[in-house]
């Protein structure tokens, strides 16, 4: 049952990602990206990362993608025009991509022996442990990141406002 779920969600993720590349309208690409994120959230659940799965759905698929869709609609983005400027990319792009993937797959399957399996229900920690670690060992990074978020909010407002003075 577990491998079946893995392959279903993995295929969904790759399919949505390919759809992101193929679609020409940004809204369709954004919806495909939401599909990728939802499939990845289920994969996180299967790896035992419940907190990350929830945050993935709430923050990524919720907040960030809403921002993307909002901007696409605000700017009224139409279909993108194709430009065939690079012959090199046209003929060498796909073969080089496949070479890259095959190399990576070979290295990964050699590095991690086939008996390092992912077993369902055999998980190292739960959300409470993450919270404890986050607020004990990683307290300073947490505070720094909150300042980063504050700066990002102010920066976004400054960048996007109309200059009327």
């Amino acid at each position: 049952m577990y491998p079946l779920f893995f392959f279903v969600f993995a295929t969904a993720a790759v399919g949505f990602a390919i759809n992101l590349l193929v679609q020409r309208h940004p809204i369709h690409s954004a919806l495909s990206l939401i599909g990728v994120m939802a499939s990845l959230a289920s994969l996180y659940l299967m790896l035992g990362a419940e907190f990350i799965a929830a945050v993935q759905v709430i923050v990524y698929a919720g907040a960030i993608m809403v921002l993307f869709v909002f901007v696409i609609m605000l700017l009224n983005a139409g279909e993108e025009e194709r430009t065939d400027r690079s012959r090199l990319a046209k003929y060498l792009g796909m073969p080089l991509f496949l070479v890259f993937l095959v190399t990576l797959a070979t290295i990964l399957s050699r590095q991690f022996s086939p008996n390092s399996m992912v077993q369902f229900g055999d998980f190292p920690g739960h959300t409470a442990d993450i919270g404890r670690r986050l607020f004990q060992n990683f307290l300073l990074p947490f505070e720094v990141v909150s300042i980063l978020i504050l700066i990002a909010i102010v920066g976004a407002v400054v960048l996007a406002r109309k200059e009327t003075y």
Binding site: A105, Q111, P114, M117, V118
Partner: peptide, 8 residues
């Protein structure tokens, strides 16, 4: 059970 390398 799925090998870890599949995820990677």
């Amino acid at each position: 059970m799925v090998p870890l390398s599949y995820y990677l």
